[in-house]
Design a protein around this nucleic acid. Structure first.
Lengths: 248, 248
DNA sequence: CCCGATTCTTCCACTCAGTGGAAGAATCGG
DNA sequence: CCGATTCTTCCACTGAGTGGAAGAATCGGG
């Protein structure tokens, strides 16, 4: 007389919530055994449900551990807590800053604007208009273009329909910007040349978490400096490091 | 020969994700029929599952509609998107600003600091140190105290263990601050008197969503003005309005 | 390199949690 | 007031879910 039976009265939805609720600020990633313990589920049950949630994108596998997956981030009302992102990014931004002496930015998309979360001022007196906490149009800055390139289609549509001119070099033709965005998605980095303020160029790359672009980092340099390749490489290394530290 | 049978091959976890995934930026709240349609589920099934998710706090009922519930917000890695909050708050902040002519703030907790999301400068020349995007200690400002009072226990513990002095009036005794926080939870508002900068007083109240404190709004006035009761009342009305607009 | 401890994964007999058509209740709008 | 629409409850039926046990992989010390 073997054969097991589901605990009477318990629902699958409840067990799913128990698993999602097992994660918190302190423990963004858990091994299966810990996950099962926290959720109060037998190990095989936790294993099967967690696997199913991974298949649905609600959880992600990180090495041997489980973490909150991108599917939950896609629900528009949820976003990475700023401090998590900032903490993960801080050392990498400092590295870039030390290596390039340029102005370094960490930014996220906030609706149809770029929101600057962090800013390390560079040596050179480049005219930079961004300040921490302020927002700028998505289409005229490096980090903005990166975020726009990976924004949902309807956001992109709305932004492209209202391109304001900031400098004579701002891209205001929807077709041209659309081509640039495609290029950005392809090459993995964005550049601007005096599109936001005269005398300043920028290079920016996305920070991904679970294949989802959650932020962008970029540098602003005087128009004269043109070591784009080196800057881009440094930024991409940093972006990967940040992603790793975000626990994904 | 009646009797229904669950669609073969489908899992409950998948249906749960279909329901959660039905919500997005544009549609933070949905009636049952729309929810069922988007999730691709028969109406009774959607009804039962949604009800279960509400019981588990993953969804919330807003009037007749369903919305993402607080349980998901409690998972430390998820937070309200800043723009949603800002958009919901904007008209109310303007009202308060017009009515009081004081400096008005919208802030959220970012780790162990207050992060200012919005700031409407007041008429009077009050010494206010906050700027949009900057962070300040939680224990020395009105909005900070509100957010601290409703922060998780471990955040509270850590902040209370490191109270730095800013002015001679800053509360730096953990016992005294703890008593103030209890009072704030009880009365629903916080006040400071020259604890962050000499010459400035503040009143602040929490903004709740689903019984969860997600932000705080407050005003800063010269120490002379003492119409606290009126300010508090105006703030509380605004906080409720914001919460309503957040779709909760 | 081997072997015991630990953690993860698969298997599967058994059954109760889940299903969804249909019918009834509530709500809306004219 | 009454028809249309949306929401909720009911319930006969069964396959999705369960979890102990056993096997596989991984780790760490000697």
């Amino acid at each position: 007389m073997a054969g097991n039976v589901g605990t009477p009265g318990a629902t699958v939805a409840g067990r799913v919530m128990a698993i999602l609720g097992a994660f918190d600020d302190q423990q963004p990633r858990l091994p299966l055994s810990e996950l099962a313990r926290r959720a109060g589920l037998p190990l095989p049950t936790a294993h099967r449900l967690a696997g199913e949630l991974v298949r649905h994108g609600a959880l992600a596998r990180v090495g041997g551990d489980y973490a909150i997956g991108r599917r939950l981030w896609e629900i528009g009302l949820l976003a990475p807590v700023p401090s998590t992102l900032r903490e993960a990014a801080s050392p990498f931004l400092n590295d870039i800053h030390a290596a390039t002496r340029a102005t370094v930015h960490l930014a996220v998309r906030d609706g149809e604007r770029v929101l600057y979360l962090e800013r390390l001022a560079g040596r050179a007196s480049v005219p930079v208009v961004s300040t921490v906490g302020s927002t700028l149009p998505l289409h005229a800055t490096g980090v903005g273009k990166v975020l726009l390139a990976h924004a949902p289609a309807d956001i992109r549509r709305r932004v492209l329909a209202a391109l304001t001119r900031v400098t004579p070099y701002t891209v205001t033709q929807p077709g041209r910007l659309r081509a640039q965005l495609a290029q950005i998605r392809l090459t993995g980095y964005a550049t601007t040349v005096e599109e936001m303020s005269l005398g300043a160029c920028s290079v920016a790359v996305p920070v991904r978490r679970e294949d989802q672009v959650v932020a962008a980092i970029g540098v602003v340099v005087p128009t004269l400096r043109r070591d784009r390749a080196r800057l881009t490489a440094a930024l991409q290394v940093a972006a990967q490091g940040i992603a790793r530290h975000l626990g994904a």
